[in-house]
């Protein structure tokens, strides 16, 4: 398994790469879309703001290549945190920015309820609403580590794999065919996170 980690500037890429290696994959942090042809899996990590990230993806020449890899070549892919959000049609952070448009939806700011704070940071339960290989051999409604202010508002109910309770509830995992997105950080979610990465590597 050769896992391409899209490097479009910033992010905790080292943490992601390490977790992939521990889960049995070979991590390849890449600055070039040309590397996609060498990859069996793609991980789109991401921290920071939606518009900056889309700008960086365009600047690095990633956008068309990723859309082709996801939609035509059907390479198993996992978007993490902002990487999940970038799969949406558009983001509403600092104005409207078109996303990759892989999974229908928009990315909006969370609205904290009484006693809640933003960012949503810490360990929270991920409640599976649909069976998926991604969560195989993990504990049902296990805790994963989150840190984010925006959330993925899915256009199609069928794409929702899991939800979590905060700010009135939000989508914590999505799927369209072989493309997955998780709002939490599996690379920093201890045993359950590593199992999820193993499950992802077992696909395709």
């Amino acid at each position: 398994m050769k896992v391409l980690i899209v490097d479009y500037g910033m992010g905790n890429l080292a943490s992601v790469a390490r977790a992939i290696e521990v889960a049995g994959g070979r991590a390849m942090i890449s600055l070039s879309p040309m590397d996609i042809k060498k990859a069996s899996h793609i991980v789109l990590p991401g921290v920071g703001a939606f518009p900056d990230a889309m700008h960086a993806l365009h600047h690095g020449g990633w956008v068309e290549s990723l859309i082709e890899a996801f939609n035509v070549q059907c390479i198993p892919a996992l978007g993490i945190c902002l990487g999940m959000q970038l799969l949406a049609d558009y983001g509403e952070e600092h104005g409207i920015t078109p996303g990759l448009g892989i999974i229908g939806g928009r990315v909006c700011q969370m609205v904290p309820q009484a006693g809640e704070r933003l960012p949503h940071v810490g360990w929270n339960e991920v409640i599976q609403v649909k069976q998926s290989e991604l969560f195989a051999r993990t504990e049902p409604s296990a805790d994963y580590y989150f840190v984010h202010k925006y959330h993925f508002n899915a256009a199609n109910q069928e794409s929702i794999l899991a939800t979590s309770n905060y700010a009135g509830g939000f989508v914590s995992a999505i799927q369209r065919e072989h493309v997955f997105g998780v709002q939490f950080h599996p690379e920093k979610s201890s045993k359950n996170g590593l199992q999820l990465i193993r499950n992802f590597l077992a696909m395709g």
Binding site: M10, N12, V47, G48, A49, P119, V121, V147, H148, K149
Partner: peptide
């Protein structure tokens, strides 16, 4: 914050 995001 601009470069790495609030979460960082």
């Amino acid at each position: 914050v601009r470069k790495f995001g609030s979460q960082c």
